[in-house]
Design a protein around this nucleic acid. Structure first.
Lengths: 234, 234
DNA sequence: TAGTGTTACATTGTCGACAATCGATTGTTG
DNA sequence: CAACAATCGATTGTCGACAATGTAACACTA
């Protein structure tokens, strides 16, 4: 469940990507991207047989895919009733911000306490990458690096359960980002925020870093709840 | 996912238990109890066809059950290789204690911040029940009430994601309790601990309550790691 | 004998068909 | 017309059989 080797930048296997993964996981990935890109709106019904015929497979792997997505918190399944794309209420978004802050703060404290805060070169490299991207204003690319930054931070805590929980959190953060009408926060500010957080961690100031992170997250497009359409009560 | 109505004491439906639930969930519950009771040791292979014939059903619901247990963190599945009962390393147990403390502390702070700490009658009732059970030394019964106490505390925070995470945490705590050779901590002390925590919460002293809780958890049979057989590296 | 290719077996992955369940619709009755 | 019961359609739940995959044992070659 921990996904070793993911600390490297490459998400795809370097070789030919033969992808002998079970169909279910590939389908899950495909549908997940649809949800996270906003192609599937909250409340949309995911009918097994429809997905199956649409993808040219049987229902079995589709069922498995839907269960994976349910684990990710992206869909909701009611026995004998069906599966729908999960909607996020304003309360969910706020709760997501809180729980995210909690976990990242814990990760920071744990890293510092273990004395691992001096070797964070890859995080620094990600900050550099943000600085490179920021001027272009390409928020999509910036979000991708942002996600890697926070994931790396979590993984540096070397806490399996924490990493496992973070997977769910990051997923829902991405969903919120996909759904909300992007408030174009200044890309430069985002990049600078990460740099400051990282510097505080490296300096061993866990409390300060956690505070900076809390402020950053409050402004993050993924968790900010200004202008959140409160239509879906989920 | 939130499990409404579970605040009541009854876990089983009061009537004849016609069990309208899908087979998969019932099987998951059955196997879960086996794991949590220690009948299935870590590393034990859960072969689908064997379980299926053993239970007189087909493989489909068994697969679903294994998926649920995987979600709970009780088993590990490797594609094309099989599913095994998850083993807990000493590191896992320690991490479990940390993450548990983190979440319960968060719940306490959230309850107090929302001003809901004045109405905790059911928690008080659970403390009373502990006091009643403690003299008998029935640790099994005490653990059951203990679990309800902490679950109620979490639910009082009214945070869906937190509640969802707690489900996984509580499950693994139970597994640890099942596996370790029970160090018979004095039942009376456990009961008193909970009372003190509750009183601090009611008094609005979130920090104090969280501290008491951390001390209590450090002594809790479910998370203490003294005498943990470090054989399984999971 | 070290190393490689091959075969056999156990287990999971996938498929298509049938059964069970739920909500809505329709029909019935006072 | 209101309330209740039967029916229908859509969807998921379950089943048994077959295909794909991975491990381990075995034979083969240099």
């Amino acid at each position: 469940m921990s996904d070793p080797g993911a600390t490297q930048s490459a998400v795809q296997p370097p070789l030919g990507a033969i992808s002998n993964l079970p169909l279910g996981e590939r389908i899950a990935g495909q549908v997940r991207e649809m949800i996270l890109n906003g192609d599937l709106e909250p409340g949309a019904a995911l009918v097994e047989i429809a997905l199956a015929s649409s993808l040219g497979v049987s229902r079995a792997p589709v069922r498995e895919a839907l269960r994976i997505l349910s684990h990710d918190g992206l869909v909701e399944t009611v026995p004998y009733r069906g599966t729908t794309v999960r909607g996020l209420s304003r309360r969910d978004v706020e709760g997501l911000r809180e729980i995210r802050t909690l976990h990242e703060g814990f990760a920071i404290h744990r890293i510092v306490r273990a004395g691992r805060h001096t070797d964070l070169g890859d995080l620094s490299a990600l900050c550099d990458e943000m600085d490179r991207i920021a001027p272009s204003g390409d928020l999509r690319a910036l979000n991708l690096v942002d996600e890697r930054f926070h994931r790396s931070l979590i993984e540096r805590a070397e806490h399996d359960l924490l990493t496992s929980f973070w997977r769910t959190i990051a997923m829902q953060v991405r969903q919120v980002m996909a759904l909300r009408n992007r408030r174009i926060a200044d890309a430069g500010i985002i990049a600078a925020n990460h740099r400051r957080i990282l510097e505080a961690v490296v300096a061993g100031d866990a409390d300060g870093a956690a505070l900076l992170l809390e402020e950053h997250v409050a402004d993050d497009p993924g968790t900010v709840l200004a202008s959140w359409s409160d239509g879906d009560t989920a």
